[in-house]
Design a protein around this nucleic acid. Sequence first.
RNA 1: GCGGGGAUGCCGGAGUGGACAAACGGGAUGCGCUCAAGACGCAUUGGCUCAGUGCCUACGAAGGUUCGAAUCCUUCUCCCCGCACCA
Length: 832
Amino acid sequence: MNKINKFNLSKEKVVDFAKIEKKWQELWEKKKAFVVKEGKKRKCYVLEMFPYPSASGLHVGHAFNYIIGDIYARFKRMQGFNVLYPMGYDAFGLPAENAAIKAGEHPKKYTENAINNFVMQQKRLGLSYDWGRMIKTCDADYYKWNQYFFLKFFKKGLVYRKKSSVNWCPKCKSVLANEQVHNGKCWRHDDVDVEIKSLEQWFFRISNYAEELLQDVQKLDWPERIKIMQENWIGKSEGTEIFFEINSEKWAVFTTRPDTLFGVTFLVISAQHPRLMEIVKEENKKEVEEFLRKIKSTSEKDNINLEKEGVFSGSYAIHPLTKEKIPIWIGNFVVADYGSGMVMAVPAHDQRDFEFAKKYNLPIKLVVVPLDEKLSSNTLKEAYLGNGVMINSEEFNDLENVEAMEHITKALEMKKLGKKTVNYKLRDWLISRQRYWGTPIPIIYCEKCGIVPEKEDNLPIVLPEKVKFGEGNPLSTNEEFVNTKCPKCGRKAKRETDTMDTFVDSSWYFLRFCDSANSKVPFDKKKVDYWMPVDQYIGGAEHACMHLIYARFFCKALRDFGFVSVSEPFKRLFNQGMIHGEDGFVMSKSRGNVVNPSDMINKYSADSLRLFLVSMASPDKDTQWSTNGIESMHKFVTKIFEHCKKIKFGKSSKRFESKINKTIKELTNEIENFRYNIAIIKLRELFSEMEREEEIAKSDFGSFIKMLSLFCPHIAEELWCRIGSKNFVSLADWPVCDEKKIDEKFEEMDKNFEKAIEDINNILKIMKEKGKEIEKVYLYVLPKEIEGYNEKELAKRIGKEIKVFAVNDKKKYDPENKSGKAKPGKPGIYVE
RNA sequence: GCGGGGAUGCCGGAGUGGACAAACGGGAUGCGCUCAAGACGCAUUGGCUCAGUGCCUACGAAGGUUCGAAUCCUUCUCCCCGCACCA
């Protein structure tokens, strides 16, 4: 067994992929093959979502992502575009800080190590980045501009501070992200309940752009499902705002069903409503407080089917039209920051209200009834949500409820008791984090002047390196950082110790790539105007509602400030699928099914890995790793290399010319649409054809190498160089299809040829079963079809001696007159 | 619950009205090469039948449209993903 393996290994060594890869990677870098500048040429900006550099290094998912992008970038470059294809690192974030707490390694060092490791591994994949533009978001050169934009936003009121309920772990002494709360417990302390704390937080007013974000998403060339996810996330709903009088003050509620206004039997205010206590009567206070305490411990959303609960506030509202007294309840199911945080409850026509009314024995009043069915408030089993005719609604009775919506809204507007409104689910973006490893928020608190923005000239506010980890936010315990002077009055003041959400970093990094070394401004507008928008963005679908909305928001806000001219950052988006482990499960350390790209490169070469990853399935689909798959792909790559080394140049046959031009045409289209798997199949087919040819034209061979170079750039460069080409194949012109050379007759010939082989084999099989030994096969072909039947090829495929005659050949050997059986496309066969 | 996407041969996965028993790859089997194994080449890989033919059964299930359906329509089952009390 050992012997065999050793032998195999030495055989594989015939092609020294490692050497070839190193050679070309170094040459690309040395000759600045992929370095770009603005110019007159048509541009194409290809970008992959930049990674968070984790210490565990690159995994195949990353590799897959970058390979998809690299193939596209190479393709566009060869097509003559000026391709901007950069790489950077989303380097701030929690894992680095947690590592610091756990292992005592400074986040900066941790991150730098991780980045170096990423770069090294990425280079080995043969990715054609313009490395000179690299960004690390943890560099002050970068995050300075986060602070700069923050100040701009602040000036224009796009940033504000407000009290908000956040997840707080008393043991970490820090706010947690929603993702860090599991079943109401802290992710690091599973015995500690997360508290909901009301804290002053910084927000970006993304809701200002809700409508535009919604409108523009439809125009994007993005996967439909991502667009739909964003639409749902923004969640526009049109309805009516209605004012109820409470303690002689007007309180608004939002409804999409103004037609049911007469069915309102109570109001429900959110338990998290900031003005809740104003409507709680003294005698109900105790009960309410107890209720609030109770829901606090179950406040996490992890409870999927939370039982609706509530308590009476003691107050009443006055119905705007009937002037009836309506009790106000406090409920756990009303969202505080949507609409006005208070709803009008119509138990007859809303399932949630219905359940609440049943539980607390509140009246149910039908106001819309279907025509074909008799309903009664007493026997109602569930809320009636359908359309129908109005009842119990004074002058609106007998109207269709759909009409009544309009009429009631108008009536309210006349009396100034309501108005048409639009509401969005999209909330303002909470950006403050009580964490160290992020961009310091450039705000100062002065006892006299209050909240004061830092002066632009004082940027960057540098993150101090010497801090203590493990006790809440390390910034707040760093005296040197915290204590400062007020930029306005010069008195003693304190710095904001919150840092920005790292999604701020990734909201504009694609702009910085256009001018990454600029130290005067975040980027030169001219350069950004040349490169933007990103023509092709590539990344996973998990960012559908976070990064992709934030970045769109930033782009629009920066447009309004005059920094950029485009309204949308990413013109076209491609979502790659997930690569699962060989066992079908998501790759994870604990499962032990993780595949490391570098190991695969060592074992099978970068070109094999690249080719394999994009050939398994359509790149947008989830797939499974397969050892067999990459092994056979490696064999294929080796075979290509070996065959191409000894190929004979001359004149291509008409047939091969037809084939290669057809392949060029199809491949171009497949690549443009990310059907790489199909492209590879076509390339394989072309290669098989090539193997059959005695000789081919050098230019046709060149075309093949060019197409191959997208997937296997290293061996392609090597082969390209060996045929005497001076420049890089990576920078060569993409082959153009010569339509005139495509001749469908060859397809027809192939089909007939394959059919004939099938027929012969069938006959041979039958003869064998009958015990007859066959040595020779004779084929009788129509004279004009004879070029389609190559004796040598036939003999190879059948494994017998074979002779091909034209049917009109006088000298043919045909003892049983089988030539008479020959038909167009179907030769006669005789065996003996 | 709402929204989106799927279900294809031993497996992965193409294919969106005829040229489909269905690309391509993997696996398996057989043959060739070889002392032998690997590698390589060729063939087979739904069933029956047969000198290259013909038939049947098949693309989640059941119906329908059509001269004709894996492909279009309807209903159902199952799987995946996203959102989740948004009034």
